[in-house]
Amino acid sequence: MIRHLSPMTRISVKLVTPPALLVGVYLLFAGHNNPGGGFAAGLVFGAVLILRTLAEVQEPRHAREIVAFGLFAAVAVAIAPALAGGVLFDQVIGEIEVPVLGKVKGGTALPFDIAVAAIVVGLVVALLDGLAASGGIRSHHRLEHDE
């Protein structure tokens, strides 16, 4: 635990957050054709979360909800093709015209990657939550209480 948290740490963590998130989103979308994917994206988001927790900018919350969303989404992607008469995990690929970006190609692999990312993030949040519970992290609540 960083006892005397420097303003520098806090501010740099806050500054780093948006570009880091952007990298994560890029990995998520790039994964299908280039290095990246749901797991990598989830790790980037997870790292951001840990940093923000470390800098006491944020508290880890809603692990269960995030994980539940991820698992539901993953299962939905898995069985949706089967319900439509195909096999499990049958890939559906479509192309749409988006005004600014032009032709965008996407498949059901993307929602599955998002689900994977969500579960990884959920796991990180759960870990942070566990650390906080065992006294590893000072929570905002306790900070106020101390002062």
Binding site: G31, G37, A78, F112, V116
Partner: peptide, 19 residues
Amino acid sequence: GGGENVVNVILTDVRGLDT
């Protein structure tokens, strides 16, 4: 799988059930 990243296609499609 419609993707050029073989690893990712394996993870999300070919062996999706494993993932």
